[in-house]
Design a binder for these strands. Structure first.
Lengths: 158, 158
DNA sequence: AATGAAAGCTTAACGCC
DNA sequence: GGCGTTAAGCTTTCATT
């Protein structure tokens, strides 16, 4: 046996990597040469480290974050799904097909699966709840509509 | 009065803009010249349209999406916060200071504010719940821990 | 609104330390 | 692991339509 069978983790990146991740997390389109300037390093080095961070899976992807209101998806709701005994995982997986469902979590508590959904209007929400309720293994749903979303973030506090 | 007092919305972008947004939403670091190739247009045109989409606010930002597990933030929980009457908005705003809280929504239903939090471990969650409970106007909290997160997305279904 | 052309900059690969 | 160099490719501006 080796001294480390654990999956790669925070211990496997150094301060420079962490700084690179912080910068890319805030500005995903920044030039590597600009990162090199800020960290006072050669841009070949930044290029190499960034490639490693991507290959090792620390960086999953790069995305433009769009404005949901301006693009016609102003309504957010959280749907608590109660599933039949032992069927929560299966339900969760099948719900993943629906593009209106942004988040799917199996959770502790009164419900088994918690969904975050985003839709254009209340009618679309009604349709979505009907769709969810029709899935095999779904016993019932309880929905909390967001009246105001103060914060929606994905950043990690590195 | 003009014929359009509404905020800018989906009607204000054309098919080309929508295609650009779809591409950037999936690959935030793609070269403008590559978008131009895919859409069979000049790269100066893509540059101009992309700048407009940024300036008009359709594109909020560009981000690298990092792997939370690998970076030491494996625990997700949803915290339902019950606030004193009329104090939900104030509570929501003050909670926004805490970097462990990724999402803050004022919601309908039994609780007033719903939080999505991400922390390194259960101890950090305990500390966070203590912090939340100490805020003025917070009456009580109920927490659902995520056992498995099947999907965490921000993409819009354009 | 879209374009081609051109200047300056960036990326990605290589060899060297 | 980090760096400088370099060729290829990219961004950005601008005059033109």
């Amino acid at each position: 046996m080796t001294t480390n069978d654990a999956p790669p983790g925070p211990a496997d990146i150094d301060e420079t990597d962490r700084k690179i991740l912080k910068i890319l997390q805030t500005d995903g389109r920044v030039a590597l040469s600009e990162i090199a300037r800020r960290l006072d390093m050669g841009s070949a080095t930044i290029h190499e480290r960034t490639n490693d961070l991507e290959e090792r899976g620390y960086i999953r992807e790069y995305r433009a974050v769009l404005d949901p209101e301006m693009l016609g998806f102003p309504e957010v709701a959280f749907v608590q799904v109660e599933a039949e005994a032992g069927r929560a995982s299966g339900v969760a997986e099948r719900l993943a097909e629906d593009p209106s469902i942004q988040e799917i979590h199996e959770v502790t508590g009164d419900s088994d699966v918690l969904l975050k959904v985003r839709v254009p209007d209340r009618d679309a929400l009604t349709d979505l709840l009907t769709r969810i309720g029709e899935h095999d293994g779904v016993r019932r749903t309880a929905t909390n509509v967001a009246l105001r979303s103060v914060r929606e973030e994905n950043r990690l506090d590195l």
